[in-house]
Computed example of a mutant assay.
Amino acid sequence: MPKVSAKRQITLPIEQCRVAGIEPGDEYQSFVDNEGHITIVKKVAGAAHGLLSHVKGDSRMSDEASMKSGIGA
């Protein structure tokens, strides 16, 4: 069974990497839920492409005004 190293590093079992399509050098994100479970997700280039395509900009608003509205100023 894999163990956490002194540097808090973990080694993922090779079979899990094969199933998840994780290769050496791949980037990932990890998340911890309220119960302490860790989820590791492989980053995929372009995965968020089009995510905000439904959002329409308002060309009447300046960049400065837009930034201020986003921070509640």
Rank of each mutant, 00 (worst) to 15 (best):
P2K: 12
S5D: 10
A6Q: 15
R8N: 07
R8A: 02
Q9T: 10
Q9A: 14
I10A: 01
I10G: 02
I10T: 02
L12N: 02
Q16C: 03
R18Q: 02
V19L: 09
A20R: 15
I22Y: 02
I22R: 06
I22M: 08
I22G: 03
E23H: 15
G25S: 13
D26C: 08
D26G: 06
Y28I: 03
Y28G: 03
Q29M: 08
F31N: 14
V32G: 01
D33G: 06
D33A: 11
D33I: 11
E35C: 08
G36D: 09
I38R: 15
T39L: 07
I40K: 05
I40V: 04
K42H: 01
K42L: 03
K43N: 08
A45K: 15
G46I: 06
A47N: 09
A48C: 06
H49M: 08
H49T: 11
G50P: 00
L51C: 04
S53I: 05
H54K: 12
V55W: 07
D58G: 03
S59G: 01
R60C: 02
R60E: 00
R60H: 04
M61S: 05
S62W: 09
D63Y: 15
E64Q: 13
A65G: 10
A65E: 09
S66K: 15
K68P: 00
K68E: 03
S69E: 05
G70M: 10
G70T: 07
G72D: 10
G72F: 13
A73N: 11
A73L: 15
